[in-house]
């Protein structure tokens, strides 16, 4: 039995050696399209629970949630990509992602319509992002992966969830709102 285990262990090592350029990605559904994120930055996947709305923030910041005592912001990716707000259904999930921010780890949740599966994608199957023609901002895309003869958009988490950019956006949002209100008066 012992020998068997060892052998198997060795096999696994060999397998890994052969496919060392294979990375695993979590695919999920977002306003009708499939996207993928490298699993290394994913901390956990949670069922949708009611979020606490944070007032005076742009629409893509859906609110905050309680992650075992820590308060985590939740982003509506669809709105961030310029689509309509994500509706809440039975399969709606929050994917908690670890984002490096000025040498500090921060957790951010993203709201998705449904989570599919974890795919192993070989590096040779990943194409660079097209210069235009994609339906989201090009710098959000880290690559296009060929899976079963169709393309899955691999998201660049650092860019999509750039705290810097989102904070700046929300600051602008605040002053814009003030301007708008002023205009009303």
């Amino acid at each position: 039995m012992g020998a068997l285990t060892i052998r198997r262990g060795r096999d696994a090592a060999q397998v890994e050696e052969v496919h060392e350029d294979v990375l695993q990605y979590l695919t999920f559904q977002l306003s009708g399209e499939t996207y993928a994120i490298g699993i290394l930055s994913i901390k956990e996947i949670l069922e949708y629970t009611t979020l606490t709305q944070v007032p005076l923030m742009p629409a893509f910041i859906r609110g905050v949630m309680n992650l075992r005592g820590a308060v985590v912001p939740v982003i509506d990716l669809a709105v961030r990509f310029g689509r309509n707000e994500t509706g809440v259904s039975r399969r709606t999930c929050v994917v908690i992602i670890e984002v490096a921010n000025e040498e500090m780890q921060q957790y951010i949740g993203i709201l998705v319509d449904a989570v599919h599966e974890v795919l192993a994608i070989r590096a040779v199957d990943i194409e660079p992002p097209p210069q235009f023609g994609s339906r989201i901002r090009v710098d959000f895309i880290s690559g296009m992966a060929r899976v079963d003869n169709r393309f899955v958009v691999l998201l660049d988490v650092e860019k999509v969830l750039s705290v810097e950019e989102m904070a700046t956006l929300s600051a602008m949002n605040g002053s814009e709102m003030a301007d708008l209100r002023e205009a009303e008066v």
Binding site: V54, P55, L56, M57, I61, V64, G69, A70, V71, P73, N101, E102, Q106, I108, V163, M166, A167, T168, S170, A171, G174
Partner: peptide, 13 residues
Amino acid sequence: KPLGNLFRHLRAM
């Protein structure tokens, strides 16, 4: 609990 960097521009909270 601090709200974190993302909300640093948020006054009032």
